[in-house]
Simulated scan of single mutants.
Amino acid sequence: MEEIKKDHKNLPEIDPLTNDKFVPEHEFDGIRELANNPPWWLTFILLGSILFAYIYIARYHFFNDGDLQVAEYEQQMLDAIPEEVEEAATTGEGGITIETVKVDYTIPLDDKADLAKGAKVFATNCAVCHLAEGQGLVGPNLTDEYWIHGGSFEDIMHIINTGVIEKGMIAWKGQLSSKQIHQVASYITTLVGTNPPNPKAPEGEKYVAPAE
Protein backbone atom coordinates (compact mmCIF):
# COMPACT_ATOMS: atom_id res chain seq x y z
CA MET A 1 0.00 0.00 0.00
CA GLU A 2 2.84 2.39 0.83
CA GLU A 3 4.44 1.78 -2.58
CA ILE A 4 1.11 2.51 -4.29
CA LYS A 5 0.78 5.77 -2.34
CA LYS A 6 4.32 6.82 -3.29
CA ASP A 7 3.62 6.12 -6.96
CA HIS A 8 0.39 8.10 -6.69
CA LYS A 9 2.31 11.07 -5.29
CA ASN A 10 4.77 10.94 -8.22
CA LEU A 11 1.97 11.14 -10.77
CA PRO A 12 1.64 14.61 -12.38
CA GLU A 13 -1.24 16.76 -11.24
CA ILE A 14 -4.03 17.65 -13.66
CA ASP A 15 -5.28 21.18 -14.28
CA PRO A 16 -9.06 21.03 -13.71
CA LEU A 17 -9.73 23.74 -16.33
CA THR A 18 -7.80 22.34 -19.27
CA ASN A 19 -7.22 18.74 -18.19
CA ASP A 20 -3.55 19.24 -19.03
CA LYS A 21 -0.80 17.90 -16.81
CA PHE A 22 1.28 20.25 -14.69
CA VAL A 23 5.07 20.09 -15.05
CA PRO A 24 6.41 18.92 -11.69
CA GLU A 25 8.34 21.52 -9.69
CA HIS A 26 7.76 24.26 -12.31
CA GLU A 27 6.06 26.88 -10.20
CA PHE A 28 6.87 30.54 -9.63
CA ASP A 29 4.81 33.11 -7.76
CA GLY A 30 1.78 30.85 -7.86
CA ILE A 31 2.05 30.25 -11.62
CA ARG A 32 2.46 26.66 -12.75
CA GLU A 33 3.59 25.41 -16.15
CA LEU A 34 1.39 23.04 -18.11
CA ALA A 35 2.94 20.11 -19.95
CA ASN A 36 1.05 20.72 -23.20
CA ASN A 37 2.37 21.10 -26.71
CA PRO A 38 2.56 24.51 -28.40
CA PRO A 39 -0.19 25.32 -30.94
CA TRP A 40 0.36 24.02 -34.46
CA TRP A 41 0.64 27.52 -35.96
CA LEU A 42 3.49 28.45 -33.61
CA THR A 43 5.32 25.26 -34.52
CA PHE A 44 4.76 26.05 -38.20
CA ILE A 45 6.26 29.55 -37.76
CA LEU A 46 9.30 28.14 -35.94
CA LEU A 47 9.97 25.51 -38.60
CA GLY A 48 9.38 28.06 -41.36
CA SER A 49 11.87 30.46 -39.76
CA ILE A 50 14.51 27.76 -39.58
CA LEU A 51 13.91 26.83 -43.23
CA PHE A 52 14.08 30.50 -44.27
CA ALA A 53 17.39 30.93 -42.40
CA TYR A 54 18.95 27.99 -44.27
CA ILE A 55 17.72 29.30 -47.64
CA TYR A 56 18.95 32.83 -46.84
CA ILE A 57 22.42 31.62 -45.84
CA ALA A 58 22.70 29.41 -48.91
CA ARG A 59 21.54 32.11 -51.33
CA TYR A 60 23.42 35.14 -50.01
CA HIS A 61 26.55 33.58 -48.49
CA PHE A 62 27.22 30.44 -50.51
CA PHE A 63 25.82 31.24 -53.97
CA ASN A 64 26.21 35.07 -53.70
CA ASP A 65 22.83 35.50 -55.41
CA GLY A 66 21.87 38.98 -54.23
CA ASP A 67 23.24 41.98 -52.34
CA LEU A 68 23.90 41.83 -48.64
CA GLN A 69 22.83 44.70 -46.39
CA VAL A 70 26.19 46.46 -46.71
CA ALA A 71 26.00 46.41 -50.53
CA GLU A 72 22.39 47.65 -50.45
CA TYR A 73 23.40 50.49 -48.12
CA GLU A 74 26.27 51.49 -50.39
CA GLN A 75 23.95 51.50 -53.42
CA GLN A 76 21.44 53.68 -51.58
CA MET A 77 24.22 56.11 -50.71
CA LEU A 78 25.13 56.27 -54.39
CA ASP A 79 21.51 56.90 -55.33
CA ALA A 80 21.38 59.78 -52.86
CA ILE A 81 24.21 61.66 -54.58
CA PRO A 82 22.86 64.76 -56.36
CA GLU A 83 22.10 64.33 -60.05
CA GLU A 84 24.58 67.01 -61.10
CA VAL A 85 27.49 64.79 -60.07
CA GLU A 86 28.33 62.48 -62.94
CA GLU A 87 29.55 59.38 -61.21
CA ALA A 88 31.40 56.18 -61.87
CA ALA A 89 31.49 54.02 -58.77
CA THR A 90 33.56 50.97 -58.01
CA THR A 91 33.38 48.84 -54.91
CA GLY A 92 36.51 47.41 -53.38
CA GLU A 93 37.73 46.26 -50.01
CA GLY A 94 37.82 49.83 -48.79
CA GLY A 95 34.19 50.47 -49.79
CA ILE A 96 33.02 52.83 -52.53
CA THR A 97 35.18 55.16 -54.56
CA ILE A 98 33.36 57.96 -56.40
CA GLU A 99 34.98 59.40 -59.49
CA THR A 100 33.35 62.66 -60.56
CA VAL A 101 33.34 64.20 -64.01
CA LYS A 102 33.21 67.99 -64.13
CA VAL A 103 30.17 69.30 -66.01
CA ASP A 104 30.52 72.35 -68.28
CA TYR A 105 27.44 74.45 -67.53
CA THR A 106 28.35 77.02 -70.20
CA ILE A 107 27.40 74.64 -73.02
CA PRO A 108 23.81 73.51 -73.67
CA LEU A 109 23.05 69.81 -73.54
CA ASP A 110 22.07 68.06 -76.76
CA ASP A 111 21.23 64.60 -75.44
CA LYS A 112 17.59 63.67 -76.11
CA ALA A 113 17.09 62.30 -72.61
CA ASP A 114 18.39 65.51 -71.02
CA LEU A 115 16.22 67.66 -73.27
CA ALA A 116 13.18 65.54 -72.44
CA LYS A 117 13.85 66.05 -68.73
CA GLY A 118 14.30 69.77 -69.38
CA ALA A 119 10.93 69.85 -71.18
CA LYS A 120 9.33 68.19 -68.16
CA VAL A 121 10.85 70.75 -65.77
CA PHE A 122 9.67 73.55 -68.09
CA ALA A 123 6.12 72.20 -68.23
CA THR A 124 5.98 71.87 -64.45
CA ASN A 125 7.60 75.12 -63.39
CA CYS A 126 7.91 77.57 -66.30
CA ALA A 127 4.84 77.11 -68.51
CA VAL A 128 2.59 78.97 -66.07
CA CYS A 129 4.36 82.25 -66.98
CA HIS A 130 5.81 81.46 -70.41
CA LEU A 131 3.05 79.12 -71.67
CA ALA A 132 3.51 75.56 -72.81
CA GLU A 133 5.30 76.41 -76.08
CA GLY A 134 7.32 79.29 -74.66
CA GLN A 135 5.31 81.98 -76.49
CA GLY A 136 5.08 84.12 -73.35
CA LEU A 137 2.31 85.30 -71.06
CA VAL A 138 3.35 87.06 -67.85
CA GLY A 139 6.92 86.14 -68.69
CA PRO A 140 8.56 87.07 -72.01
CA ASN A 141 8.41 85.15 -75.25
CA LEU A 142 11.22 82.60 -75.31
CA THR A 143 10.88 81.65 -78.96
CA ASP A 144 12.06 84.87 -80.63
CA GLU A 145 15.54 86.39 -80.86
CA TYR A 146 14.90 89.17 -78.35
CA TRP A 147 16.06 88.91 -74.77
CA ILE A 148 15.68 91.31 -71.85
CA HIS A 149 18.66 90.10 -69.83
CA GLY A 150 20.89 88.64 -72.53
CA GLY A 151 20.38 85.70 -74.82
CA SER A 152 23.59 83.72 -74.42
CA PHE A 153 23.37 80.33 -72.79
CA GLU A 154 25.27 81.62 -69.77
CA ASP A 155 22.75 84.47 -69.48
CA ILE A 156 19.84 82.01 -69.54
CA MET A 157 21.49 79.85 -66.88
CA HIS A 158 22.15 82.92 -64.73
CA ILE A 159 18.56 84.18 -64.93
CA ILE A 160 17.13 80.77 -64.03
CA ASN A 161 19.52 80.47 -61.09
CA THR A 162 19.16 83.96 -59.63
CA GLY A 163 15.78 85.09 -60.99
CA VAL A 164 14.53 88.65 -61.53
CA ILE A 165 12.54 89.27 -58.37
CA GLU A 166 11.27 92.72 -59.37
CA LYS A 167 9.60 91.19 -62.43
CA GLY A 168 8.21 88.13 -60.69
CA MET A 169 10.87 85.68 -61.88
CA ILE A 170 11.89 83.66 -58.84
CA ALA A 171 15.36 82.21 -58.28
CA TRP A 172 15.23 78.50 -59.00
CA LYS A 173 18.61 77.79 -57.44
CA GLY A 174 17.93 75.67 -54.38
CA GLN A 175 14.57 74.50 -55.72
CA LEU A 176 15.97 72.73 -58.76
CA SER A 177 19.26 70.88 -58.90
CA SER A 178 22.10 72.26 -61.00
CA LYS A 179 21.53 69.49 -63.51
CA GLN A 180 17.81 70.25 -63.76
CA ILE A 181 18.58 73.93 -64.38
CA HIS A 182 21.12 72.89 -67.02
CA GLN A 183 18.51 70.66 -68.65
CA VAL A 184 15.72 73.24 -68.70
CA ALA A 185 18.04 75.98 -69.97
CA SER A 186 19.16 73.65 -72.76
CA TYR A 187 15.53 72.92 -73.60
CA ILE A 188 14.76 76.66 -73.78
CA THR A 189 17.43 77.10 -76.44
CA THR A 190 15.51 74.63 -78.63
CA LEU A 191 12.40 76.85 -78.48
CA VAL A 192 14.04 79.76 -80.33
CA GLY A 193 12.62 80.04 -83.85
CA THR A 194 9.75 77.58 -83.31
CA ASN A 195 7.04 80.22 -84.07
CA PRO A 196 4.21 79.04 -81.78
CA PRO A 197 0.68 80.49 -82.16
CA ASN A 198 -0.13 83.88 -80.59
CA PRO A 199 3.39 84.77 -79.47
CA LYS A 200 3.96 87.68 -77.13
CA ALA A 201 5.53 90.77 -78.70
CA PRO A 202 9.33 90.90 -78.65
CA GLU A 203 10.93 92.47 -75.57
CA GLY A 204 14.49 93.57 -74.95
CA GLU A 205 17.25 93.52 -77.52
CA LYS A 206 17.94 91.16 -80.35
CA TYR A 207 20.65 88.72 -79.41
CA VAL A 208 23.33 87.97 -81.96
CA ALA A 209 25.67 85.13 -81.09
CA PRO A 210 29.35 86.15 -81.34
CA ALA A 211 31.26 84.78 -84.30
CA GLU A 212 33.31 81.72 -83.46
Rank of each mutant, 00 (worst) to 15 (best):
M1V: 13
E2G: 12
E2D: 09
E3P: 05
D7S: 12
H8D: 10
I14W: 14
L17P: 02
K21D: 08
F22R: 09
V23T: 12
D29Y: 09
E33A: 14
N37I: 13
L47K: 06
G48E: 06
G48W: 14
S49G: 14
I50M: 05
L51C: 10
Y54E: 11
I55C: 11
I55M: 09
Y56V: 05
I57F: 14
H61R: 13
G66L: 10
D67Y: 15
E72K: 13
Y73W: 05
Q75D: 04
Q76H: 10
M77Q: 02
L78T: 07
A80Q: 09
A80F: 02
E86A: 03
A89T: 03
A89V: 06
G92A: 04
G95E: 02
T97Q: 09
T97P: 04
D104G: 01
P108H: 01
A116F: 04
A116T: 10
G118H: 03
V121M: 07
F122Q: 05
C126T: 05
C126V: 04
C129V: 12
C129A: 12
C129N: 13
H130P: 14
L131R: 12
G134T: 09
L137W: 08
P140Q: 04
P140M: 08
N141H: 11
N141W: 08
Y146I: 06
Y146D: 06
W147D: 00
I148A: 12
I148Y: 02
H149E: 07
H158W: 00
I160L: 08
N161R: 10
V164Q: 13
I165Q: 04
E166N: 08
K167T: 01
M169E: 07
Q175V: 00
L176D: 03
K179W: 08
Q180V: 02
H182M: 01
V184M: 06
Y187Q: 06
Y187I: 03
Y187A: 05
I188C: 03
T189E: 00
T190R: 06
T190P: 12
L191Q: 07
N195C: 07
N198L: 15
N198M: 15
P199E: 14
K200M: 14
P202Q: 13
V208W: 04
A209V: 01
A209S: 05
P210Q: 02
A211S: 15
A211G: 06
